[in-house]
C-alpha cells in the first residue's frame, strides 16, 4: 500500500526492497520529516550556501548518487500542520542500507545539521538507529522510473567521460598517419583504461 508510515516497520535489516522504489540497480529513497520551526531559517540559509560550502564536496564523494534533492515543505493543501517538513529524495545504486554506515560516520555532522533540526532525530554515529529511523520514515509505494536503471552512477560518469575524450581523439585521428594514429590510439586506451 502506498502509504507513508502506515503501521509499524520492520528493522532496517529486514526491510524489503519491494516498496515501489526499486528498479534495476536503482533505489529511490524519499523521506518526509518534520523540522522544528525555529530552525527553518537555518535550513533555508544552509541550503542556499551549500553549493559553496564543504557540503558540496561531501555529497560529491559519494559516487553512487545520481540525483538528490531537498525540498522544504511549509504547509500542505487542506492541512493545518504544526511543523514544516523536509522532503528528501535520493536516487542511487543499490539498497540504501549499504551506505548508511558511510553516511553515519563520514558525514555525521552534515546529517546532524540537516535532519537534526527535527524532533527525535537519532544523531549518528552509531549507524543502526539511523537505519531504523530511515526505514520508519521512508515513503514507499507508487511507481518509480529511471531511464538508465541498469547502469550505475559510476557507469554513467565513466561513459560520459569516455565519450568526451573519444570525440577529441576522433577529431585528431583523421589528420594522423597510420603510425602516429596507432601510437595515439594506444595512448588513448591507456589514458581511458580505468573508465572503459
Amino acid at each position: 500500500m502506498g502509504t507513508a508510515g502506515a503501521g509499524p516497520r520492520p528493522p532496517a535489516s529486514e526491510y524489503a526492497a519491494s516498496q515501489g522504489n526499486v528498479l534495476g540497480r536503482m533505489t529511490a529513497l524519499t523521506l518526509m520529516t518534520p523540522v522544528r520551526r525555529q530552525w527553518l531559517w537555518f535550513l533555508r540559509l544552509g541550503f542556499r550556501l551549500a553549493p559553496y560550502s564543504p557540503l558540496r564536496d561531501h555529497i560529491i564523494q559519494f559516487n553512487f548518487i545520481k540525483y538528490v534533492r531537498w525540498v522544504l515543505v511549509d504547509g500542505l493543501d487542506g492541512e493545518d500542520l504544526k511543523y514544516p517538513y523536509l522532503h528528501f529524495e535520493s536516487n542511487f545504486d543499490g539498497p540504501w542500507e549499504h551506505y548508511i554506515d558511510a553516511f553515519a560516520y563520514v558525514i555525521a555532522t552534515d546529517i546532524r545539521l540537516t535532519w537534526g533540526r527535527g524532533p527525535d532525530f537519532p544523531h549518528p554515529p552509531p549507524a543502526e538507529p539511523l537505519k531504523d529511523w530511515i526505514a520508519a520514515n521512508s515513503l514507499d509505494g507508487g511507481t518509480y522510473y529511471c531511464a538508465h536503471a541498469e547502469h550505475s552512477t559510476r557507469d554513467l560518469q565513466n561513459a560520459l567521460a569516455v565519450r568526451d575524450a573519444f570525440l577529441d581523439f576522433r577529431a585528431r585521428a583523421a589528420s594522423l598517419g597510420p603510425d602516429e594514429f596507432k601510437a595515439a590510439w594506444q595512448q588513448f586506451l591507456t589514458d581511458e583504461q580505468s573508465r572503459l
Binding site: G2, T3, A4, G5, A6, G20, N21, A28, T30, M32, T33, P34, K66, Y67, L76, D77, G78, E79, L81, K82, Y83, Y85, H87, E89, N91, G118, P119, D120, F121, A136, N137, L139, D140, G141, G142, T143, Y144, Y145, C146, A147, H148
Partner: peptide, 30 residues
C-alpha cells in the same frame, strides 16, 4: 526524463516522543 516517482502518502510519521503529532486530514500525491 531521467527519473520519476509518483506516490501517495496518507500520514506523517510521528517522531516520538518529543514531537507534537501532525495528523493529515487528506492523502497527498507526490
Amino acid at each position: 526524463v531521467h527519473l520519476a516517482r509518483v506516490q501517495v502518502f496518507r500520514r506523517l510519521v510521528h517522531q516520538r516522543p518529543h514531537q507534537r503529532p501532525d495528523r493529515l486530514r487528506h492523502a497527498h500525491l507526490v
